[in-house]
Design a protein around this nucleic acid. Structure first.
Length: 419
RNA sequence: GUGGGCGUAGCUCAGUUGGCUAGAGCGCGGGAUUGUGGAUCCCGAGGCCGUGGGUUCAAGACCCAUCGUCCACCCCA
């Protein structure tokens, strides 16, 4: 039996790898415009970082982490998300001493031990941004806009923006009590999962998908009616900021976040073409996290975008990814192959992407190969060409042919692509 | 962790109530055109029918297990 890639992991092969490069380049380009700088943190971290940062009772920590002991007996975890490591790095490198806010972006693999499903993998890739050091609601708006710009840049337009506020340390506990009281008074009518959630995480009841729960949920107290003055003002400012940038959004009072550290703004950008995992990117404010991991009260906000999910949405769209080559050298006979190999090298040194056959195939097959490799031009080298020093260059799109002097080949091809 | 669908050629899939040397299309290699891709035609290569066990005179098909995959739940990007 041969060995397969572990469950829930994927090889990214050509031509898909070109798509990935394209997406990563576009993300970097947008971040440069917004003045967000790249941060690269380790793929694995101390397990404690995630327990403290994400929350002990969350599903991620309870059952989804790839955790193991290293040879010295330390508990290590493959990062399941990007925010906690960025915050750890921010504190460890004492970046709070520099000019704030710090604006980061990252892109890389994350790991969660879950059953694979549409748009969900055990190793998956996120592009994310984090802003540390400002609690200005306009920053919330800025990152939402950054994410939307990215989606539009890569050709997506079919998505909706949903926002909510989940309050802060001051106003959320009171709201949770209200919510718990309300659900407890009607718990007979709720599904079994929701009965359990009343105790573990009453906010979660709000986005239960069971139909019989919907009516009860619609009558539940709304967080937005129970925010403290500061949170209320901030939420209003987020909305007016979105309006000022002409970003359409929907207020969704039942939108909550699974991770403990979120405060205030929560948002999700969804597509209805993704099946059950419909969020392309999601995030929010986490004003309590830095204090949780370090000891300083520094506000933060960020989002994470699932690159595999974006990939799914872009599957049918034609992207300008250009995986072809400039020229393919067809050779006939051993002497021509040796010479062709040298010309090939010259072309490459001149910055031209070029290739040839390495199977000694027939001319017809080599032409076919050039076609498959999506070559713009082919040139044929046989004994005649070597003797005369001239060969025929064929434009594979138009079928047009013209004669070139072999010694001027690289120069000639360069000129063709300058036009 | 729970539930359901599916595993046959590189890919997409046929294969009847169990019964001949397991098929097609696409792709791949060669040729028709002794040196020109895409169209057409001809020829060819390529299969432990996911794996292990069981039922049977006989299993690609039926049963059990297992692995993988897809989808859904939980939860999440």
């Amino acid at each position: 039996m041969s060995i397969n890639a572990p469950r829930g992991t994927n090889d990214i092969l050509p031509p898909d790898s070109f798509k990935w490069q394209y997406l990563e380049e576009k993300a970097k380009e947008i971040c440069r415009k917004y003045n967000y700088k790249e941060i690269r943190t380790p793929i694995f971290e101390s397990t404690d970082l995630f327990i403290r940062g994400i929350g002990e009772s969350t599903d991620i920590v309870e059952k989804e982490m790839y955790t193991f002991e290293d040879k010295a007996g330390r508990s290590i975890t493959l990062r399941p998300e990007g925010t906690a490591p960025v915050v750890r790095s921010f504190i460890e490198n004492k970046l709070y001493g520099k000019a704030l806010p710090f604006k980061f972006f990252y892109s890389g693999p994350m790991f969660r031990y879950e059953r694979p499903q549409a748009g969900r993998y055990r190793q998956f890739h996120q592009f994310g941004v984090e802003v540390l050091g400002s609690d200005n609601p306009l920053v919330d708006v800025e990152i939402i806009k950054l994410g939307i710009d990215f989606l539009k840049e890569v050709g997506l337009s079919d998505f909706v923006v949903e926002i909510n506020s989940v309050g802060c340390k001051e106003c959320r506990p009171g709201y949770l009590d209200k919510l718990r009281d309300y659900f407890s008074s009607v718990d007979q009518e709720l599904c079994d999962d929701c009965k359990r959630r009343i105790k573990t995480n009453p906010l979660r009841v709000l986005d239960c998908k069971v139909e019989s729960c919907q009516e009860i949920i619609s009558e539940a107290p709304k967080i937005t009616d129970n925010l403290c003055d500061k949170c209320k003002d901030d939420f209003e400012e987020v909305k007016s900021g979105l309006n000022s940038l002409m970003i359409e959004y929907r207020e969704v009072p039942t939108l909550v976040r699974g991770l403990d550290y979120y405060t205030n703004t929560a948002f999700e950008i969804k597509s209805d073409e993704l099946g059950s995992q419909d969020a392309i990117f999601a995030g929010g404010r986490y004003n309590g996290l830095v204090k949780e991991i370090g000891d300083r009260d520094i506000p933060g906000v960020g989002f994470a975008l699932g690159l595999e999910r974006l990939e799914i949405l872009l599957e049918d769209k034609e992207l300008d990814i250009g995986s072809g080559i400039d020229i393919y050298i067809v050779t006939i006979g051993e002497e021509a192959e040796r010479k062709g190999f040298i010309y090939l090298n010259e072309l490459r040194e001149a910055g031209i992407s070029a290739d040839k056959d390495y199977f000694g195939r027939s001319v017809k097959s080599q032409m076919k190969d050039a076609d498959r490799k999506n070559s713009n031009y082919t040139i044929i080298l046989g004994t005649e060409e070597l003797e005369s020093g001239q060969a025929t260059l064929r434009d594979m799109r138009s079928g047009e042919e013209f004669s070139v002097v072999l010694n001027e080949l690289a120069e000639k091809i360069s000129n063709l692509f300058d036009n």
